[in-house]
Computed example of a mutant assay.
Amino acid sequence: MTHAVLLLSCPDRTGVVAAVADFVWRHGGNIVDAEQHTDDVDGAFFQRVEFDMEGFAFDRDDLGRAFWPVAERFDMDVRVHFTDERPRLAILASKAPHCLEDLLSRWRAGELPAEVVLVASNHPDHADLAAFSGVPFEHLPVGDGPDAASEQEARLAEVLAAAAVERVVLARYMRVLSPAIVDRYPSRIINIHHSFLPAFVGAQPYRQAHERGVKVIGATAHYVTEDLDQGPIIDQDVTRVSHRDDVAELARKGRDLEVTVLARAVRADLEHRVLPFGNRTIVFH
């Protein structure tokens, strides 16, 4: 059964919840899930409303237009989604296989509401895994020469466009995307960073963590923006470590975190539970 999902944000004021609920009720909908949050600092209100559309007065193509008077009244930013949406998803990876393997396994099990239409890598290592999952694989090596990086990314852009990709997951893809690609997919590229951002950005975070003698390590999933590793955070997690853990052990524990955090973030995004707001997110559970 298809449900509609309204993701909305607006200045906080009285009557918003009542107006949204009244709209759904008056037009024959049945709310099956609702969650809201008020940010007292910014004076902002956020809500996710999911409702059954069986017998609803408007079809899906007209829902946004029908809701417009409510949105205009409360100065709302509204995103309209449907639970049967299956966006076309590309997964990019470099050599490390753990995040890619986990996502493809979850997708084959029906846990991720998407169509994985492409696996791409700057290394050839994952061709067999992609074939096992029934997903086309593109090897996009970085050649030699001063223009090698830009040429590789131009080829990546072509491949994404040819596959009509709508969302991208960087499953330990160890190359920085240029603004040219990032701008094509605003709030639609998710990266897993093997560190608890904003600490230990850049290369070799586990070596940095070991050198600092940290007692917890973490992983961060975030939307990609033009500012490296500074995009809105979707999910994070940590695990305790000690002086007994060398760099290899930190990396092993980190991989466990990366798999879990990335999967949670991708699933939340695909289920329309993430609402970007400035450089942060509201994540409804």
Rank of each mutant, 00 (worst) to 15 (best):
H193Q: 11
R106H: 09
L8K: 04
D52S: 09
D128Q: 11
F132H: 10
A149K: 13
D52I: 08
V20Q: 01
D102N: 11
L104Y: 08
V274I: 11
G145A: 05
P146W: 03
D245A: 05
A44C: 05
C99Q: 03
A162T: 10
A130S: 13
G143Y: 03
D269N: 06
A21S: 15
P179A: 07
E72K: 15
A131F: 10
V224M: 06
L112I: 12
N30D: 07
L7T: 09
R240T: 12
A265H: 03
R207T: 07
G231T: 01
T260M: 13
G55A: 03
P186H: 10
K215Q: 15
V24M: 06
V159D: 04
F23Q: 03
H126S: 10
F277D: 08
L6Q: 07
V16R: 06
W107M: 05
V135F: 08
V261F: 02
P198G: 08
L156R: 07
H98R: 04
F67D: 10
D40C: 03
T260Q: 14
N122W: 10
G143I: 03
A251M: 11
D75L: 00
A171G: 12
M76D: 12
L257A: 02
V214A: 11
A251G: 09
D227E: 11
A251R: 12
V119T: 06
E258S: 01
